[in-house]
Amino acid sequence: MKDYILKFWQGLITIIIGMRVTFRHLFVPAVTIQYPTVKPELPERERNRLYVNMDDCIGCDQCARACPVDCIQIETVKSVPGDDLGVTSNGKKKALWVTKFDIDIAKCCYCQLCVFPCPTDCIYMTDVYEFSEFERENLVYDFVTLTEEEKIEKKKNHEEFMIKKEVEKAAAAKKKAEEEAAKKKENGDQPGEKPPDNKE
């Protein structure tokens, strides 16, 4: 009987204590943030959408190699001597035209491993985290600043330059061989077969 009354009493008291707690919480300011209108404050080193500042990118491919899920695709074309690519903000000379710089952000795991190796600090995390899309293809971000024509032009330039270089090289080799042959002749040796040129 004593136990019974005690239980009843305890039940009543605990309910009253509980109700006091909930009543106090009625006047505690809410922790809710009205999200789309009020954005939560992000932590200092948050990792969200990647951004590449192409003005600074030297196309070194370090970021693509660091990426554990291979979501960065970089293709580059060497510049030709006449091209002026400018310098990066920390004074490095650019030598490559970047013709393809795709980040498949759908694959990206936001590990930030690509950010550290970059010698010019041009790939970094922004504070944008709302970038959902209806089509998966739209999540492949293309950062290249060159237009299609420019890309083709750069490639052509490079190819022509390479051909020119080869031709020059071949000519130089021929000249050298001839000179050597002449030398040998002078010395009275038998002229040897000219080694075949690899390209021509």
Partner: peptide
């Protein structure tokens, strides 16, 4: 509203 505020939320806004 009461449920919201008792749980330190705002309820419908």
């Amino acid at each position: 509203k009461v449920s919201g505020h008792m749980q330190d939320r705002l309820g419908p806004m």
